[in-house]
């Protein structure tokens, strides 16, 4: 499978990455190589094999429904770039 320039732009957009236009052909080639490498897996016959959801042969441990975390807002907000009235402030996201 090979990716073209528009695929690279779309992937970059979905990942919110700004990329240099000059680098796009290189990314396209590298990403295509990775896909070709992984594509080898398609040659294995997986009929009747249950899809693997996790490499560990274990199942989910559950925790009781108990509130164990108190209010640590002040502590957490020390590392936030900007806060006001207890809210985290971020660049405006509505047009």
């Amino acid at each position: 499978m090979s990716l073209d320039a528009s695929d690279v732009e779309k992937i970059a957009h979905l990942a919110r990455l700004g990329i240099n236009v000059d680098d796009i052909p290189g990314y396209a080639r590298n990403l295509s190589d990775i896909l070709s490498f992984v594509e080898q897996l398609n040659s294995v016959d997986t009929t009747g094999v249950e899809p693997l959801a996790h490499p560990l042969e274990a199942t989910q441990r559950l925790r009781p429904d108990v509130v164990t975390e108190g209010n640590n807002r002040e502590h957490f907000q020390q590392v936030a770039p900007e806060t006001e009235s207890g809210l985290y402030l971020v660049p405006q996201v509505i047009e």
Binding site: L87, Y88, P91, I94
Partner: peptide, 9 residues
């Protein structure tokens, strides 16, 4: 919020 968005989690 002076042109910013406030987030409550």
């Amino acid at each position: 919020f002076m042109g910013k968005t406030g987030i409550d989690l």
